[in-house]
Amino acid sequence: MRILSCSETGLVRKNNEDAYLILQDRGLLAVADGMGGHLAGEVAARMALAQLAKSAAELDTLERDTLGDWLQRSLTEANRVVYASSLASPERRGMGTTLTALLILRQEVLIGHVGDSRAYLWRGGELIALTDDHSLVGELLRLGQISPEEAEKHPKRNMIMRAVGAAEEIEIDLRKVETQARDVFFLCTDGFSDVVKAEEVRDELGAERSWEGHLEALRRLVLERGAPDNFTLLCCVLD
């Protein structure tokens, strides 16, 4: 398993409220995109990932069939920690973060997801979405009330409906994917997915280039288009 990453502030924002976690020895990857004023988004993203890393210490002691429960519990605990911190400081009130995590096992991957950071699977020349955006526009798309073209320009396209730390209780999407040789899992925050279409990612990943080359080409594409937001990419290439 090889893991490649990049995380950049972009060309407009002053600080990077994205964060990512790589615990390769435990097969745990995650991206987070914080929100909130006074740098609170940056705090929320890093706090959530720190709690997830802390919870990962339990992985060595758990049976395989309990790992889905562990992922659910760990994201719930991250929510509790971020929410408690938001109540303790007026400057952090209302902060939150997206969080999309992968737990990579021998023959399957578990996905825990809150918000609009995305997970994709590249397999056999196809790019497969593994998460749904927990956003207003994502919900309108699922209901068929707007078209994909309208979604790209919707004035509220960045309105998140679920975030870690935004409320005392949280709903987490969990999914299991059986793996195949040479699968590639791709995580990104919305600073990437709002600028580069899934079809463009598919075309790039299908080109004759190293995985390092793919990631660099995608990074440069975001920058060429103005990089209006922080953006983070994680790429996990299975053997």
Rank of each mutant, 00 (worst) to 15 (best):
E91C: 05
E149R: 11
D173P: 08
E171R: 14
V43W: 08
V43L: 15
G34K: 02
L127G: 08
I104M: 09
V81A: 08
E208D: 14
K153A: 14
M95G: 03
A30N: 03
A50P: 08
P90M: 02
R73W: 10
M95Y: 00
R92K: 13
I22V: 15
S147Q: 10
L99R: 06
A48G: 13
T66W: 10
G138Q: 03
K153N: 14
D25I: 05
V195C: 04
T100Q: 09
V137I: 08
F231H: 02
A119P: 14
T131I: 05
R106H: 13
K176C: 14
L39D: 14
L4D: 03
V164D: 07
K156G: 11
L4K: 00
E108A: 11
L29P: 09
D116T: 00
E42M: 11
N16I: 11
T98D: 04
Y120M: 06
G115V: 03
T9C: 13
P155K: 06
D239C: 07
A166Y: 02
D133Y: 08
R2H: 13
A181P: 13
M159Y: 10
H214M: 03
E126K: 14
E152P: 04
M1I: 04
E63A: 15
E42G: 09
G94Q: 00
A227F: 04
T61S: 15
E199V: 12
G191K: 12
D116E: 09
G112C: 03
N15T: 09
G125K: 02
S210F: 09
E8M: 07
A30Q: 10
E149I: 14
S117K: 12
A207Q: 15
E178S: 12
P148R: 10
Y20P: 07
T179C: 10
L136P: 00
G37I: 14
S5Q: 07
D60S: 13
T131W: 13
G112A: 14
V31I: 06
T179W: 03
V184H: 08
G191L: 14
I104Q: 03
T131G: 11
A167T: 01
A45D: 06
A40G: 09
P148E: 04
I128A: 09
V82I: 07
E212W: 04
V177T: 08
V12G: 00
A207H: 11
R93I: 06
R2E: 15
R182G: 12
F192R: 02
L62H: 07
A129Q: 12
E200R: 12
E139I: 05
G124A: 05
R225C: 06
P148Y: 10
D116K: 05
R162D: 03
M95A: 02
A181Y: 07
L21V: 12
R182F: 14
S210A: 08
L233P: 04
E204F: 05
L75F: 09
E208L: 12
R123A: 06
L140W: 10
P228W: 01
L49G: 11
I172F: 06
L127M: 12
N16Y: 01
D18I: 11
R93F: 04
E108L: 05
R209E: 15
S193V: 07
L23I: 11
N16C: 08
L71Q: 02
T61W: 15
A48K: 01
S210C: 10
